[in-house]
């Protein structure tokens, strides 16, 4: 049985979308540090006051499951008017890499 690519990996992509405001990255990276989630890559743009951040993180050393991290960041993000998604990297690997 073929395994998903990177099955062993515990990397996720975090995307944050919403109106720009002070402290978005500080908030996300603060939470990630709390859970010992390692940030591998980060990119951020602002277009017409619309904030977009994409972060590649490694949950391997972390104390939290991907799904729990997702729920926690999504809820907190909602309160700040931000749309936050945490998804295992395989969904992007499968769609965009052969």
């Amino acid at each position: 049985m073929a395994m998903p690519q990177n099955e062993a990996s515990n990397r996720a992509i975090i995307t944050v979308l919403g109106r720009d405001q002070i402290g978005i990255i500080a908030w996300v990276s603060g939470r990630l540090a709390e859970y010992s989630v390692n940030i591998l890559d980060i990119s951020q743009t602002i277009l017409n006051e619309f904030f977009t951040m994409i972060m590649v993180v490694d949950l391997e050393p972390s104390s939290i499951e991907l799904v729990d991290l997702s729920v926690s960041l999504e809820q907190e993000g909602n309160e700040k008017g931000l749309q936050v998604k945490v998804q295992h990297e395989d969904i992007f690997t499968f769609m965009h890499r052969i």
Partner: peptide, 13 residues
């Protein structure tokens, strides 16, 4: 890590 273009991530979302 495998890196993705921002457009690719955005497209999936």
């Amino acid at each position: 890590t495998i890196t993705f273009a921002q457009e690719e991530i955005q497209q999936t979302i």
